[in-house]
Design a protein around this nucleic acid. Structure first.
Lengths: 340, 340
DNA sequence: CAGCAAAATGTAATCGATACCACAATTCTC
DNA sequence: GAGAATTGTGGTATCGATTACATTTTGCTG
């Protein structure tokens, strides 16, 4: 019943060679005669042999496994990043272990050490995290996705928030807006700061109205977007609105409508993140899409190169920013014509 | 520089005992003298020792690792299920390995075998999947979440679609609807069938109008919900609408509005899944929330019990259904009063 | 064909923890 | 208090693959 596992030894016997040779074949070491290789491969197939990765890992100290530390599984940006990571990992023969970030921090952590070749931290708020502690005493290769790694020792891959915001404002300018308001996320988020800079630069470049009253702050929630927009409406007039994320855009749209304004005729609106919700709200919401899948791929790729490079060293940039793209929908479509 | 790993042997030497004893302490085996245990624990702490899980796994054949096979990382229901799985896994000391289902199927699969103690398949369409093949020749413990496992050999944990649909219709009846239409998902999905049954039973139980013209079929997309609703509007009158999922509900609302109907005054609408979008569309959408986190927890729990039970055997049900709950929002709120 | 380098293969130690077996020390039992 | 039962510990083979080192085979050169 309990069939014993087929080991390298069984294969060796069947093929009439030594285990060393079988191992060489398995690892594609050159230095194996063509005929012998053939013999071994056949034996493997006939016996249905598969190398036990655990034994290999024990011996070599390499597990071909990357540990994903995720802050919140239900972050809206997580799934697409995972898609990117997974596809790369698959192609490169890496396994993926996942944990919640705080779980990992407490104690499961250290024991899990040595089990893995590298770490990817996925979080939108790494600020309060000591990365070198996470990397452990072995100082494993580690990379952050989606957020800056405060610690300069570790590379990170993130969306180009500056460029994304610029793109949003550029789009609003191009469809004819003259005054574009901005609802920022909390100022202590690096992403908020970058987006604000992008907004300001675009306002300048496209000769839009520059006015501090056109800027308000929210906390990423729909409710805060609503409130921020109401404050904006009291202070200034504008025909374009750029919100730091999609829920705030939705809240803002509520406020605009309450104020008797039509979207996009009176005010065109652009959100950020290209959440699924953009396709469901009315009007559908133009938004800036982050290159999430690409972030995942880039992170995995860089990490693998670090691993192969035997440690931290790696020639690519410490900070990699990938460009966002605009997804045009009804909240900005036809604005220009409506005005004419 | 390259500090050698602290091994059980180092601990043994420091504590003045044998490695066997250290191992016993590590595994909480009774049969160790109080004083000795103390000695060993101190040594561990001082040396900063952590057991190498790889070596342990090799020796014992148990890796304390569960393999998650996910059909699509970007399925909207995945994240919350993961939350449930993770919390349970963490508490029970299991590691989680993830792969995309098709990745796993092709070839990475078999090699990964033996590396894991059990498998969780997360998919909404297991129909076309040979589970016993997935379980491998070792016939590893395997459990499905979210969908039926066609193969009766494997248990599954899923939301109670029947009860959820019943709940939706019950709610509509309770706020005063007399004729409730239903937009079903594709009929070949087990979930669709269950929801249809729940709808029918509730229609009967609450003495709502029974009429085949009140039922239409969509394909889960917003566009199909729109079309289905238009067909409904041509065939019959109704003052309540239950959609098989949220995007279809959104599409249906578009059609209703186009037809000059107000939500919820003229038609109250309930969706299914309690997608994030429910909070962002206008009016906000009442929906049936599946117990996703609980599904994950239950699956992990059952799987662990199977693992400990030494295989497939397990006393719990083959099919576990967990109840859904209603999340009331504006698309049904105040309907009764509006009517009065 | 001797002589030597290069290529192919074999031998066996090793990674780190576990667990079987044996033995010693202690506690019961009558 | 002798013998049995129980408890605590140590020695060491073992899990399965890798790899340093040793050894054999092959291929060439002069």
């Amino acid at each position: 019943m309990a069939k014993r596992r087929v080991t390298i030894r069984d294969v060796a016997k069947k093929a009439g060679v030594s285990t060393a040779t079988v191992s060489r074949v398995l690892n594609n070491s050159r230095r194996v005669h063509y005929r012998t290789r053939r013999l071994v491969e056949d034996a493997c197939r006939e016996l249905g042999f598969y190398r036990d990765p655990i034994a290999a890992a024990l011996r070599t100290g390499k597990s071909n496994t990357v540990h994903l530390l995720i802050e919140r599984f239900d972050g809206s940006f997580i799934p697409d990043i995972l898609v990117g990571i997974e596809s790369k990992a698959d192609r490169e023969g890496y396994r993926l272990l996942v944990s919640k970030l705080d779980t990992a921090q407490k104690d499961v952590w250290e024991p899990g050490n040595q089990y893995i070749d590298g770490i990817i931290v996925i979080s939108d708020a790494v600020h309060n995290l000591n990365l070198s502690e996470v990397a452990g005493q072995d100082n494993l290769p580690l990379i952050c996705v989606y957020s800056y790694s405060q610690d300069p020792g570790f590379p990170c891959v993130l969306p180009d928030d500056y460029q994304g915001a610029y793109l949003a404002v550029q789009h609003l300018a191009e469809i004819g807006c003259k005054g574009v308001a901005f609802i920022s996320g909390p100022p202590d988020w690096p992403a908020s700061q970058d987006r604000l800079q992008g907004y300001k630069q675009a306002v300048k470049d496209f000769a839009l109205r520059e006015d501090p009253d056109l800027i308000e702050v929210g906390d990423w929630t729909m409710a805060s977007g609503y409130e921020a927009c109401r404050r904006l409406l009291e202070k200034a007039a504008f025909d374009g609105l750029f919100a730091g994320n999609d829920p705030m855009a939705v809240g803002a749209i509520d406020a605009l409508r309450e104020h008797g304004l039509e979207i996009p005729k009176d005010v065109a609106v652009v959100g950020f993140d290209d959440d699924a919700l953009c396709r469901y709200v009315r009007p559908t919401l133009t938004s800036i899409a982050m290159p999430l899948k690409e972030l995942g791929e880039a992170a995995m790729e860089t990490l693998i190169s670090m691993i192969k490079n035997g440690g931290q060293l790696c020639q690519s940039e410490q900070v990699t920013k990938l460009p966002c793209v605009l997804r045009e929908r009804d909240s900005t479509k036809g604005k220009a014509f409506g005005v004419i």
